[in-house]
Design a protein around this nucleic acid. Sequence first.
DNA 1: GTTGAAAGCATCAGAAT
DNA 2: ATTCTGATGCTTTCAAC
Lengths: 151, 151
Amino acid sequence: MLDEIDKRLLKLLQTDSKQTNKALSHELGLSVTAIYERIKKLENNKVIGKYVALINKKKVEKAFVAFCHVKLVQHSQDYVIKFEQEVRKLDEILECYHISGDYDYLIKVLVKDMEAFRDFMVKKLTKIDHIGSTHSMFVINEVKHTTAITL
Amino acid sequence: MLDEIDKRLLKLLQTDSKQTNKALSHELGLSVTAIYERIKKLENNKVIGKYVALINKKKVEKAFVAFCHVKLVQHSQDYVIKFEQEVRKLDEILECYHISGDYDYLIKVLVKDMEAFRDFMVKKLTKIDHIGSTHSMFVINEVKHTTAITL
DNA sequence: GTTGAAAGCATCAGAAT
DNA sequence: ATTCTGATGCTTTCAAC
């Protein structure tokens, strides 16, 4: 499905999606139109999902990152659906995963500081019905963070 | 530092960075040049870090996500630096955080399937020196995943 | 896959607020 | 400092091969 050129193209676009097709064509040794067609195909096949600007959390006062394990009191479908619905509504939650293990969910929370985190926990997360327990871990340092998948 | 228009602009660019300045100018009620100047300023101030293509993991055979807690045997600076260095080299590790709590690090791993995960653990992660213990959690379902920070 | 043309866009000067 | 209008050159896009 993806040949070597597609893979190299995706690597470049995952690093910098603002490069022109001309620059990409030069890099990959194809014509501008060939690059154009390949990108269109990758978009249509939904291999490329979207193009986004990544912003610097430290520059916008959102430097505090925490992960929370969450356990529900029960695992009935109603409770699960309701919880997941509420999670999607909360802007502070960037990611939420249903995971194996002692807890049910792992969520990634982004806020301004510890105080804002406390507020989030007290006023938002624990206000969701049917949450049994939570366990928070604070990020001391972000060692690595990439959106680029190696193919 | 950021006014309301900047915030709305950043929201739009975090959702879709391929929109033309014309479309953005229409959305925000400013001229194309005003949008252009604002974006350039946000780029120069490093508020916008980069533009990337996000690719669909399910379409490229990287559908297996796991989080691993990692504990080092010691916390001497040498060990920490070495571990973090190795982590940055491993393509399967998309994210790595130094965190508070029982374990030292939380890493996010992306591979093809359980078998590939086993391989990663045996041949790569646990080959790093000074790792004391690990604890893996498998992602059953990705409930939410966004790169967009709400301002 | 290619070239070449058309339309649309980013970018920049210059002037206004 | 931020905005606008208008001109230029580059990019994307598409038809034809």
